[in-house]
Design a protein around this nucleic acid. Structure first.
Lengths: 223, 223
DNA sequence: TCCTTGACTTTGATGACTCAAAATGTACAA
DNA sequence: TTGTACATTTTGAGTCATCAAAGTCAAGGA
């Protein structure tokens, strides 16, 4: 019976932690802006989470999840991602809008319904954006992915994950057929121009900025 | 952006109003117990709803929905009932458990998802219990139904609606194949025994109490 | 008419979550 | 060493929904 606010804080700590590498402690300023609350609010909430044993909090240091907190965060993430996939696959929503919808639904879905959805979808491993879906036991499949900003040049790759839930960006990705599953080759990079030139089968050449390229993760095509 | 509490109060006022005939004003005591809060809480909330123009409140008289309040109540009911049907039809939950699930989901579903569900289900008119699903515009199809406690004796009827969300009762109804759609004949009633004897094709004779019979609504089989 | 009873309302408090703004701590630059 | 700038924490306050318990009203019986 954690409140949905608590669930949101834990989810945010987990995902921010992932996003910023392993820096261990997450600063309160980052917390506050990720949660879109004032710094004072973040401090207060994090202290409360620490009281509940869900996080460890070091004053003026930052916050990190405990085992218990991570378990709950992963459960929330499982709900979020299964719901996203369900909305896309079954109800036909666009992948750019399901994050927002799932934001609410993830707090309202019981375990029973969740597992029905999981069965219905055939126990998928990733959501529509390529984000891994934690198992009911809290295991997350790890994949070694590279971004378009860093992968080998000239080598055939496949888009595996897009790390940005912004609807605008997702629509851009879709318009250029860069959704997970697409095969792609990075032709060249130009650091000065901050640009990455890519090529897709049956598509005109495309050049995107490094920041955008960094948000598109690929894996080597093994064949 | 009404809170889910507000939505629950409005839904309760609407359904209680329906249940108790047209008595116009709903007493605060009824409100309080239907919402499972103390009388003081009900009074306070109803006053707040009156401030928002969703209900009319007469101190020591009771409460009734305004047009605006009824519209919102019907929208909540639409969400609730479409979700129930979806859970039964698509995810395969038992009809005895979907009311509880929908209780949460009804507050988390956007209009966009709701209409996708409605499309997916083919614009159904009733939920798994036979309760009418209001249209997006707030129209409720009215049907002239009789309960097993009052309908004609010996005449073929079809179960159309079961007015009780209690899981135990719904399971009982299911066990005896009395779900909506089933054809049924009331053989006799015995006021002293408080009993109603019924018969279904391919089933042993069954006698149920008047209170249970009153919760099962039927319509004449027209053929 | 008066009193009792039961329904209802008011009052004072609480818990969760939030903000604004004041206070504090810290790290780096001079 | 001493400021100062900036991140963080603290403080005081507000909203929403709730309860417990005290207060009030109104209707019917004596």
């Amino acid at each position: 019976m954690p409140t949905s606010t608590v669930e949101d804080y834990l989810k945010t700590i987990y995902t921010e932690q992932q996003r910023r590498g392993e820096q261990d402690l997450l600063a309160m300023g980052v917390m506050a802006s990720a949660m879109r609350v004032t710094p004072g609010t973040a401090t207060a909430m994090v202290k409360a989470l620490a009281e509940s044993g869900l996080v460890e909090y070091e004053p003026r240091g930052g916050v990190r999840l405990t085992g218990k907190g991570e378990k709950l965060a992963l459960h929330v993430l499982r709900r979020h991602r299964l719901v996203e996939l369900f909305l896309v696959e079954v109800l036909g929503l666009d992948w750019s809008e399901v994050d927002e919808e799932a934001e609410e639904l993830e707090h309202a879905i019981s375990d029973k319904v969740l597992e029905k959805i999981d069965d219905f979808l055939g126990h998928p491993e990733v959501d529509p954006h390529g984000d891994p879906i934690p198992t009911a036991k809290g295991k997350v499949a790890r994949r070694a992915l590279m971004s378009l900003a860093k992968c080998d040049l000239g080598r055939p790759m496949r888009v595996a994950r897009v790390i940005d839930q912004n609807a605008q960006f997702l629509q851009f990705v879709d318009r250029h057929s860069l959704k997970p599953g697409t095969e792609i080759v990075v032709r060249s990079r130009d650091a000065s121009a901050d640009a990455v030139a890519i090529r897709l089968r049956n598509h005109p050449a495309l050049t995107i900025g490094t920041a955008a390229a960094a948000k598109i993760l690929v894996e080597a095509v093994n064949s």
